[in-house]
Design a protein around this nucleic acid. Sequence first.
DNA 1: TGAAAAATCGGGTAGGTACCGGATTTACCT
DNA 2: AGGTAAATCCGGTACCTACCCGATTTTTCA
Lengths: 216, 216
Amino acid sequence: MTIRLMLVDDHEVVRSGLRMLLEGEPDVEIVGEFGLAKEALASLERLKPDVVVMDIGLPDLSGIDATTEVKRLREGTAVVALTIHEDEEYFFKMLDAGASGYVPKRAAPEELLTAIRAAAVGEVYLYPSMAKLLVKDYLTQESHAEARGGMDGLTDREQEVLAHLADGATNLEIGETLGISPKTVARHRENIMRKLGMHSRTELVKYAIRKGIIQA
Amino acid sequence: MTIRLMLVDDHEVVRSGLRMLLEGEPDVEIVGEFGLAKEALASLERLKPDVVVMDIGLPDLSGIDATTEVKRLREGTAVVALTIHEDEEYFFKMLDAGASGYVPKRAAPEELLTAIRAAAVGEVYLYPSMAKLLVKDYLTQESHAEARGGMDGLTDREQEVLAHLADGATNLEIGETLGISPKTVARHRENIMRKLGMHSRTELVKYAIRKGIIQA
DNA sequence: TGAAAAATCGGGTAGGTACCGGATTTACCT
DNA sequence: AGGTAAATCCGGTACCTACCCGATTTTTCA
């Protein structure tokens, strides 16, 4: 089963380079080449590509918006970004748009082929410098990592109070909810802050989110 | 500059295979081979590897715990997971532990090499089936999806003030930082709260995190 | 150019926060 | 039985917040 491929890049040089690279591959068939995003989108239904190799810097429509459109029009079609941009912003925006791969133009040609083949079977190829960004994002999204950690010696009652504090409730409201004096709530809060080395509700909110006690 | 490499895998066959594969590469030097995680960890300081290729299914200590130890002992040493496991659980646990690469044993030998070279320069190589899992996680972590959305009509100055507010600064501190009166800060805050329909700093913190203005 | 939006500053108030002091009861552990 | 920790309560205070009022200047843009 050959992979039906569409190329979208406004540089004729790039397209012919890709053509040369891909022509030798028996499992890849180029079904269309476009220099403008809108032309490519208009031909989507007719050409039914499995994979679209998409530049980001296009003259009529950004590759990001074009990718969003491709995924809207033909959900099953995978998009691989091929671009000179290696910055965080474009990368994450392409992921949001639904891209299945991100390859800088400086990458080795085989890497684009790997990305195309991965995209064709529903997988994702990320160039190492980009994968690094995504992993970094994942790790700072510490709902995963830190949530597994202990609660730094907070008692059950303190955690309960913390949950309400971080949720935005006042001492009075929490006292009513838990059936205790607002002064006791304040006392619990003081102990929590001392234990955690924090000094404001704001810090408590962020702590609670990191620990998965509440949702952002 | 050659990459100092350590192999940790309890199968002699795998180690000899890797040795054969890597011996031909001029930029890679194998400085140690181990079948047990504890032996590898004990030799870390002496061998000072740049990259450790780590199996997950080890007899004495899981590759996940071993990776955590490697990163604790030698922060600069990168770890590439080489394993038969392709399931979500092991993959994410290895990322949490600090791995810079994840390659299934069924992958082509060149992919391990790519991963090793990427890890050596601080980047991350993820096999496409694994990258797919991470991207999926990223997309369901919709804090991002929403972040890309509009800012609900907040002006530049208001967003700036919001960032400091959510960071825990008082009106006075923000005023000093931005060189404006604390009263002006309070006014900006009032406008922000009115526009967003919120009534407390706590809500602002959560909003700022959802929008990616600050980190939790 | 003239209206609209943004950014700035100020006064005032009711209530909340952050932190200090001291105190009691209950429970659990050795 | 005696000690330690948790959970509860109370009084007080300096500061901060959330919200109200009004005002000026600068920027933006139709």
